[in-house]
Design a protein around this nucleic acid. Structure first.
Lengths: 224, 224
DNA sequence: ATTTTGTATGTTGTATACAAAATTAAGGGC
DNA sequence: GCCCTTAATTTTGTATACAACATACAAAAT
C-alpha cells in the first residue's frame, strides 16, 4: 500500500535508474564488501551473466569505477579490483586528515543546532554500541558520523572528496580496530570530537579529527 | 623512413591507446578550453561523426568525464558540460586551499634539492613572463608550478585530487587575473612562495598557497 | 630438454542494430 | 492567434555481432 501524500511539494521526481548506475552501485558494493578481492580479475562474462545485463552498461560501469579509483583497467588485459599498497593508503589518510580537519572546522561554523544535535546523537549511539562491543553496527555508525560531519559543513566538493577516499579505504579500515585497545583509543578520540561539537569549537574538532586519522594509520599500517 | 636503433634497450613498448582514452582526453581539452561551453548540450551524433569513432567508446568516455565532474549525464535526456555555480566554485577553492597547504608543507619536507631548484626555476620564468605581460604562457607555467609542488610532495592521492579540482576550475581561473592589479597581487603571492621554498619553510609555503586561493576567490567571485 | 613457432581458444575493444524515450513538428479545436 | 493532442523524427539506452588482441597449448626444431 502506498503512503498518502498530503502535499504535492513532497513529491520528488521518481529517479530513473539506468542499468549503468545500478551495475555501478552493485559492483561498488561487491568491491567494498570484499566479495571481489583486491587484485583479483573481474570476470566480465561471468558477472554480466550473473547480473543479467549486456556488456555495454557493464563496461560503462567499469569505467565509472575506474575513475573512482576502485578498479584498474589494463587495456586489452582485463580489469582488476584495485589493490592498495601501504604507500597509497598512507597518502589517502594524509589527504583525508586535512579534508576532515576542514570538515570539522566548517561544521562548527555552519551547522544548525539541530544538525549538531544529530551528530551528538549518532555519537551517543556509537558509545552504547561500544559498551556492548557490537562491532559491525559501530563501524557503520562511525562511517555515518564522518559523512554527516562532512555534509553539515555545507561544502559539496568536500563531501565528494571525502566520500571518494572513504569508499576506497572502507575495506582497509574495517580490518583495523581489531585489537581491543585500538578500539578503546578510537572511542576516546570520538569523545573529544563530541566535546568539541558541544562547544562548537571548530579548530578543536578539526584537530582531533585529523589526529584520529593519523592514529588510524598507526592502527592499520602493519596489516599491509 | 625509420631511424636506426643501435641498441635494443632503447626500444620502449609501443603504447596502445584505446579509443576510449583518446576520446576522453580530446573531450577534456574541448571542455577545458571552452570550445564546448558550460551548460551546453553535448551532441553525441555530431561529435561521434567528427571524431570518427562509434558511440560505444564515446559514451564510455562520457562516463569517465562524468565521474571527473566535467560533464553531467541526465538519464535519457543527454549530457551537458557541467556548469559551475558560484557556490560550487567556492567549495572547490575551499578544499583546494587545504590540499595545497598540505602540498606546500610536504613538498618542503620531502622534495630533493634538485626538485626545489626546479620549482624556483619555474618561478623565475613566471616572473619574466609577468614582466613582458605574456598572459597565456604565464598562466600555463602557473598551472605547472602548482602541479609540480603537488608532485614533489610525494603523495599520489594529493596529486590526483589536486589535478581533478584544478581541471574543473581551469576555465574559471583563466577568466580571473584580467585586472592588472589582480595579476600583480598574484605575482606578489608567488614571490612569497619562492621565498618559503628557498628556506624550505613548509608551514609558510602552505599558508601562502592557501591564502593565494582565498584571494583567487575574491578575484573571480564577481564574474560568476 | 629447452626454446621456438604455429594454432586454437577466449577475452577485450569497437561497431552496428534495435528498442524505448524524449523532443520536435503538425494538425485541429477553441 | 494559442493551446492541446497526436504523429513523426531524433536521441538515448541496451543488446548483439564482429574484429583485434592476448593467452594457452601443442608440435616442431634446435
Amino acid at each position: 500500500m502506498h503512503d498518502m501524500v498530503d502535499d504535492i511539494s513532497s513529491l520528488a521526481p521518481i529517479e530513473k535508474q539506468t542499468l549503468h548506475d545500478q551495475v555501478a552501485s552493485q559492483l561498488r558494493d561487491l568491491i567494498i564488501e570484499g566479495v571481489l578481492e583486491p587484485g583479483s580479475r573481474i570476470d566480465e562474462t561471468a558477472l554480466v551473466e550473473r547480473l543479467g545485463v549486456s556488456r555495454t552498461p557493464f563496461r560503462e560501469a567499469l569505467r565509472t569505477l575506474a575513475a573512482e579509483g576502485l578498479v584498474v583497467i589494463r587495456p586489452s588485459k582485463g580489469s582488476i579490483v584495485r589493490k592498495l599498497g601501504a604507500g597509497e593508503v598512507h597518502s589517502m589518510l594524509e589527504v583525508l586528515a586535512e579534508i576532515e580537519r576542514l570538515a570539522g572546522r566548517l561544521a562548527c561554523e555552519r551547522a544548525s543546532d539541530a544538525e549538531i544535535a544529530e551528530l551528538l546523537d549518532i555519537h551517543d549511539r556509537m558509545i552504547s554500541l561500544y559498551r556492548t562491543r557490537d562491532r559491525l553496527p559501530y563501524y557503520k555508525l562511525n562511517q555515518l558520523f564522518h559523512s554527516r560531519v562532512a555534509a553539515v559543513s555545507r561544502n559539496a566538493t568536500l563531501v565528494e572528496v571525502q566520500a571518494n577516499i572513504q569508499s576506497r579505504l572502507k575495506r582497509i579500515r574495517f580490518v583495523g580496530n581489531r585489537k581491543p585497545e585500538d578500539w578503546a583509543n578510537a572511542v576516546a578520540d570520538h569523545e573529544q570530537m563530541a566535546a568539541a561539537l558541544r562547544t562548537r569549537d571548530g579548530e578543536a574538532l578539526g584537530e582531533i579529527m585529523a589526529v584520529h586519522l593519523v592514529r588510524t594509520w598507526d592502527r592499520v599500517k602493519d596489516s599491509l
